[in-house]
Nucleic acid binder design. Structure first.
Length: 291
DNA sequence: TCTGGGGTCCTAGGACCC
DNA sequence: TCTGGGGTCCTAGGACCC
């Protein structure tokens, strides 16, 4: 699928997640480039180093980070950051400014491409109030649809909703959290403490569906072995996507937890044994959860 | 439009215990 | 013989994000 697309390509309806076949049909003369993860990682590290010079940095991915800064003139600081990144890497970036991470994240969307945008508690509703709930960071297509069925379509409407009612519909944590989102309220703590992963996984979609279960076992064993490392594994979860795109998972705990590749492989195969369906397999995945 | 790979967090139901 | 109420843990699935 398409990882990302230039703004020129987006104008023709090509974007992230789209099957390459579809993209090629919409834009037959587009330039298609392979993913070059090593280069992205290297350039990302250079950008992050520049940003670290400006404040507390919380890295969110290859191309995104929160910077914790108090500034009397945040717009000027944003321009400074952009020119520092540009001179170090010749890359453009967008800076979103907010009074918390939610506001900064959403402001970034309004600043693209390569601009600066600022959101505050005072401007929140004026900018976002009439937008669909899916404009919020954390509300996707499914939740937006469910909210719409309850008569809640805009950010304003969600901000005015009853937390108890939404708790009943979405669960005790998620319901009230949705309303906080709509009010522009959220965490403003930016932290640079090194992130410790809860899990690691490997998965593969096969170009030709797997029909031989012996082969399925071999593939799962190989994926599991790739995940063995320094950290003790407490649980192994196997994912199987059958040809018609139905996906299921089964897991198996390791007691005691272990770093041993053989033990991790054995746990994966035990989990795989919980699958009894022998339909053609499109994807296999293994995830290890750390103690 | 026939749908990648790597993650996180929350929910609901069942098992089990007191 | 069948039963309440509360709590914790485990598991599979769902939703979302980069």
């Amino acid at each position: 699928v398409v990882s990302t697309a230039s703004y020129e390509a987006r104008a023709y309806g090509v974007g992230s997640g789209m099957p390459l076949r579809t993209a090629a049909r919409r834009l037959p003369n587009a330039v298609f480039l392979p993913v070059d993860a090593d280069t992205y990682l290297e350039v990302s590290a250079r950008v992050m180093e520049v940003l670290r010079g400006f404040g507390v940095l919380e890295v969110m991915g290859w191309d995104e980070a929160f910077l914790g800064v108090d500034s009397a003139d945040p717009l000027a600081l944003a321009r400074e950051i952009q020119s520092a990144v540009r001179s170090a890497t010749s890359l453009d970036c967008t800076v979103g400014i907010g009074q918390n991470k939610l506001q900064a994240k959403l402001a970034t969307g309004f600043g693209k491409p390569a601009g600066v945008f600022r959101l505050t508690h005072d401007t929140w509703f004026e900018v976002l109030g009439d937008l669909p709930t899916s404009a919020l960071w954390g509300i996707g297509a499914k939740t937006a649809k469910k909210l719409a069925a309850l008569g809640i379509s805009t950010v304003n409407q969600l901000a005015a909703a009853d937390p108890q009612h939404l708790a009943g519909q979405f669960g005790p944590a998620t319901g009230p959290w949705l309303i906080q989102l709509a009010r522009g309220e959220g965490n403003s703590v930016v932290t640079d403490v090194p992130y410790v992963a809860r899990s690691r996984s490997r998965e593969t979609t096969y170009q030709v569906d797997l029909t031989d279960w012996g082969r399925v076992r071999e593939e799962v064993a190989a994926l599991a072995r790739e995940l063995a490392g320094e950290r003790p594994v407490a649980r192994v979860v196997v994912k199987v996507r059958y040809a018609p795109f139905f996906t299921h998972t089964h897991g198996h705990g390791l007691k005691p937890s272990s770093t041993d590749a053989g033990a991790i492989e054995a746990a994966a195969l035990t989990a795989l044994d919980l699958f009894t369906d022998r339909k053609p397999v499109r994807l296999l995945g293994v995830r290890v959860e750390y103690a």
